[in-house]
Each structure stands twice: as C-alpha cells, then as structure tokens.
Design a protein around this nucleic acid. Structure first.
Length: 231
DNA sequence: GCATTAAGGCCCC
DNA sequence: GGGGCCTTAATGC
C-alpha cells in the first residue's frame, strides 16, 4: 500500500492545526478503504470499533425500521468525520453508513480516539462542532416533520442537499450526490409517488431540472419560497 | 392533502 | 430480459 499524502488532511478542519509531523503520524495510523456505491461502511448495532473520515464520495446515514422502511438520517460530505461513536460514549453504531456513490474513507481503530483528542490541538473542538451541527440539523428536521406539509419538507430537504453538496453548473446548482425519488421520500417521511408528482410539477414550473438520480435546482429562490421559511 | 394501488415506460447491466 | 428508477391516474381516507 502506498503512503498517503499529507496534503489529504492538512486543510480539513479536524487536522488544520496540526504540524506536518503530527499529520504524518495520524496518516500512518489510518487504514484507507475504498467502497463501491451502495456498500455499508458499518451497520446499525455493530460494535463501535473504528472511527472514520470521508475523503471522497458521499455517505448516507440510515436507520431501518422494524417494518423494513428506511429512514435517511443525514448525509456526510467529503472531509467530514463519521462513525464517531467513540466521542459519544457508544458501544454500538446507532445507524448504518451507506455509500451513496464510490467512496474512499480513512479508518482508525477506536482506541486511538482518546490520544487524538488529547494530543492533537483542535481535533476535539472540531468534533464537537460537527456533532453540534448534526444535532441542530436533526432538530430542524424534527420541527419540519411535525409542523410542515410534504411540499415544504421536500423543498427544505433539497435546499439542505444544495447547501451541503451543491455544485454550480450552468443553469443552476446541481446536487452532487445521486438522489432518487425514493431517497427523498426516505428523508421526508412521504412516498416516492408524492415526491415524483411534486418534482414533475416543479420541473414544469422551471424550478428544478432532473434526470434519473440527478437533481439540479434552476430557481433556488423559488424553492426557498416553497419551503415556507417566509410569509 | 396525502397515501395507496395499479399500470405502464425508460434505461442499463 | 429483468431490475431499478420514474411517471401518471384513479381511488379513498
């Protein structure tokens, strides 16, 4: 296995304050793993044995209900830590991490967590920040689920994806991760049929343009209006 | 306003 | 050709 380059981590928030030698040390302790799209990096209920950093690709954190329905809890963008049960005092993973496309991750054995937070300046505070942001997002979504109608919830979900992994293309902002109607319904507590019907309408109105597994927002301001943030 | 059911079309492995 | 993805329409709560 070839040595990983230090520039991979140097600009990522958890490692930004580290010296070159420290980054080398962190990288040498990591295992780099490639996953095809649709693979589980770890599964709900498994013992927490490692923590991860997503280098490339996108991760869906999902929970499966007793009835077999899948709930998409959140998405992980490149450069983010995930599977950090160690930071939360968990012994098992609370959800499954599914790759949304081809992914490259770094994995460290769990016992290194304590020394990472103790020895590497900025690592712990960045971790708390990430956890805080995710809790905040989940709070927002909880309120949406409880108070908003389906159309607004889907608009909010798409806007979040745009914020987190949108990339500018000519004519709009494309969501940088493959998203199906079913995926959107799994994020918003509705059915793929309702999502399909609404997206078709939005496409007719020129708000979005979509192909299979791909959504481009062509009129973000109008989607914001639909999301119900304002009057 | 929304889920459910049904029925069909398209694309890609 | 079969499975995954998407659409549309009808019906009912």
């Amino acid at each position: 296995m070839h040595k990983l380059d230090e520039s991979l981590l140097a600009n990522l928030p958890p490692f930004r304050k580290l010296a070159r030698s420290q980054i080398r040390e962190v990288l040498d302790a990591a295992q780099s793993i490639r996953f095809d799209a649709g693979a589980a990096v770890f599964s709900e209920g498994m013992p927490v044995d490692r923590f991860y950093l997503l280098l490339d690709g996108h991760i869906r954190v999902v929970r499966t209900t007793a009835g077999g329905d899948q709930i998409i809890v959140l998405h992980i963008a490149p450069g983010q830590l995930f599977g950090i049960g160690a930071a939360l005092g968990r012994t098992t993973y609370p959800a499954t991490a599914m790759t949304a496309d081809d992914c490259i991750v770094l994995a460290w054995p769990n016992h290194l967590w304590a020394s990472f937070t103790a020895r590497h300046d900025g690592f712990a505070t960045e971790t708390y920040k990430v956890v805080g942001e995710r809790v905040g997002e989940m709070n927002t979504r909880l309120v949406e689920l409880a108070t908003q109608q389906v159309e607004q919830r889907i608009a909010c979900a798409i806007l979040r994806l745009v914020t987190q992994m949108g990339r500018k293309v000519e004519g709009g902002i494309e969501i940088g991760v493959p998203i199906t109607r079913q995926n959107l319904s799994d994020m918003t507590g509705t059915t793929l049929h309702t999502v399909s019907r609404l997206l078709s309408g939005w496409e007719r109105d020129g708000i979005v343009a979509s192909e299979r597994r791909k959504i481009t927002v062509t009129a973000p301001h109008r989607l914001v209006e639909l999301s119900g943030v304002g009057p």
